[in-house]
């Protein structure tokens, strides 16, 4: 991947120029789907965009010292890493990549969650600290399954390159891996039934409680970009191999939209679980997916 393609992927497609409107669109789809499931009409199409612009025009509370600087920095780091993760997705055929970009993608997808944990603790708010502690526990639970699923797909094919993984033929292992990823997405995106860190009826807005104005706008944007990155990763793994570039882009968008719709419907149909139930669910029930995936990966590796 040379400099020009790298910049084009980061800034145009599937990077910022595509990902920011897509983030707003997915946030709208989430709210609209919940509203329709509840028998309401829901927000207008441009609502996340209006919210973003309005938040940019609001004031921020005065912050001083290192703590204040850190609090301003966390949302920017979260947005930058989520945008970088979207830019790495191998959407277009033969768009280039490098060996090991899967590891970079996983690290970048994990950074926003780290930033949320740090932000809650540096805000010194009791609600923020509880929210951060919950996010940390949640992240330890779902990441085991999430990482094992992806790593087993990669290990069975002897590659850590995303483009090579996206072009593999469908296999039972891949289906198993995608299922395990789908189970982890609600926790990664803080959706019901795993919406513990931002449980509004219990701890207000969790780690975001002390954030306002442009900083909150950045958190909303990073959440939207996380939507694009997380659904995009599953979409690229699930998409069939297509050589026409516009058809590949269209399939990517359609698959992401379908996953967003599925997650939103599940979110509106379920209630929030307690933290111990959530942790037990990930450590006991879904770990079997991951163990199966790793076992079959090892099996495929020895057979080949």
């Amino acid at each position: 991947m040379n400099m020009t393609t790298a910049l084009a992927r980061l800034l145009i497609f599937p990077g910022l120029l595509f990902a920011v409107p897509a983030a707003w669109f997915f946030l709208w789809v989430e709210r609209k789907a919940v509203a329709m499931m509840q028998g309401r009409i829901g927000p207008p199409f441009m609502q996340p965009f209006y919210d973003f612009i309005k938040l940019l025009g609001k004031g921020t509370p005065p912050r001083s010292g290192i703590g204040g600087m850190l609090m301003r920095a966390w949302p920017l780091i979260a947005v930058a890493s989520a945008a970088g993760a979207v830019g790495l997705l191998p959407v277009l055929p033969s768009s280039g990549g490098f060996q090991g970009d899967l590891i970079l993608l996983l690290a970048l997808m994990e950074l926003p969650s780290m930033c949320i944990i740090a932000a809650g603790f540096s805000s010194r708010s009791i609600f923020g600290e509880i929210g951060s502690a919950r996010e940390a526990v949640l992240s330890v639970s779902y990441n085991i399954v999430f990482l094992l699923a992806i790593v087993s797909i990669a290990a069975s094919q002897h590659t850590f390159s995303l483009e090579a993984l996206a072009q593999l033929p469908a296999s039972p292992l891949r289906v198993l891996g995608i299922l395990a990823l789908l189970v982890c997405l609600p926790a990664k995106l803080h959706l019901n039934p795993f919406s513990l860190p931002n449980a509004e009826q219990e701890i207000y807005s969790g780690p975001m409680t002390e954030y306002a104005g442009p900083e909150l706008a950045m958190w909303e944007l990073s959440h939207g970009l996380e939507w694009v990155a997380a659904t995009g990763l599953v979409a690229t793994l699930a998409a069939p191999v297509i050589t026409t570039w516009w058809l590949a882009a269209l399939v990517f968008v359609a698959l992401s939209f379908g996953i967003v719709l599925l997650l939103s419907v599940v979110a509106s149909a379920t209630a929030r679980l307690q933290i111990d139930t959530t942790v037990r669910f990930y450590w006991q029930c879904t770990l079997i997916f991951a163990v199966l995936a790793v076992a079959s990966a090892l099996f495929m590796r020895f057979r080949s």
């Binding site: 509203a35 309401r40 609502q47 309005k54 609001k58 509004e200 807005s205 975001m208 002390e210 306002a212």
Partner: peptide
Amino acid sequence: SPRYDAEQLGVRLEGSPRHAD
């Protein structure tokens, strides 16, 4: 609630006064 649905106007009930207008 579903009968009146203020979210059509973009209304959101926020948990923190920092987020509110």
